[in-house]
């Protein structure tokens, strides 16, 4: 079934074209949603907030983007229980907008890290795990300076109980609590992850495990 996917575009978003390519290759129709404009939730089946350096990552990653006009519509879309995927900077924006719990801090070694990671699938109750099975490992690339997931102990406990931990690192590269690489909200319709599935579609890219997401 061909989906209509909204892909947000902030000043400084870099992975919008990559995400659009990913969805097109899977037979879906992806459209850009400009940060200054609101949109009608009924016009889209799914939303993706791609990676990049929105607003230069200034002040805090995702902080300035989270407070733009388009996010008002994103919030409405979320409240309707429709699926949203935040990738890397997109994950940071969703946390800043409080659509996902916790925050992403600077990597523990204080450096940007680019590399391949083996991830473990912890839960599959969300719209982006239809081809995954619990316990499966997948190989995806990361490229981020602020990927250390933090939440207070109460929040973490709730997340564990409500099966909100989606993906974990086998070799934690950034100090994330509980080795968290990807999470969902309590309703399981909003997902965020630091690795880039749109960069793992073919063997020549280094892995085709992005194929497990759609």
């Amino acid at each position: 079934m061909s989906l209509k996917v909204g892909v947000t575009r902030f000043l400084g978003t870099n992975c919008d074209q990559d995400v659009r390519q990913w969805f097109s290759l899977n037979g879906h129709k992806a459209e850009y949603l400009w940060f200054e404009d609101q949109f009608n939730s009924n016009d889209y089946d799914m939303l993706v907030i791609p990676g990049g350096f929105s607003h230069g990552d200034y002040l805090r990653c995702g902080a300035l983007a989270a407070r733009t006009n388009v996010m008002k519509s994103v919030r409405e879309f979320a409240n309707k229980g429709k699926p949203i995927l935040g990738i890397c900077n997109g994950f940071q924006i969703l946390c800043e907008a409080e659509l996902l719990p916790g925050a992403l801090l600077r990597n523990k070694d204080l450096r940007f890290i680019d590399g391949w990671q083996t991830l473990k699938v912890e839960n599959t109750t969300n719209a982006f795990s239809k081809k995954m099975s619990v316990g499966q490992t997948i190989k995806l690339p990361i490229a981020h300076g602020e990927g250390q997931f933090y939440a207070d102990s109460e929040t973490l406990k709730k997340m564990v109980d409500q099966k909100q931990i989606w993906l974990t690192y086998e070799n934690n590269p950034n100090g994330s609590m509980l080795n968290i690489s990807g999470i969902t909200n309590a309703k399981h319709n909003i997902c965020g992850l630091m690795p880039h599935p749109e960069r793992a579609l073919f063997d020549w890219m280094g892995s085709s495990d992005g194929g497990f997401f759609l």
Partner: peptide, 25 residues
Amino acid sequence: IYNQYDQRVGAKTATACESAVAFTR
């Protein structure tokens, strides 16, 4: 050095930065 660089934005890179020759699709 190399793993401080984003090598794959654009989803076209076919090699690691430490390779002697880089390839892009």
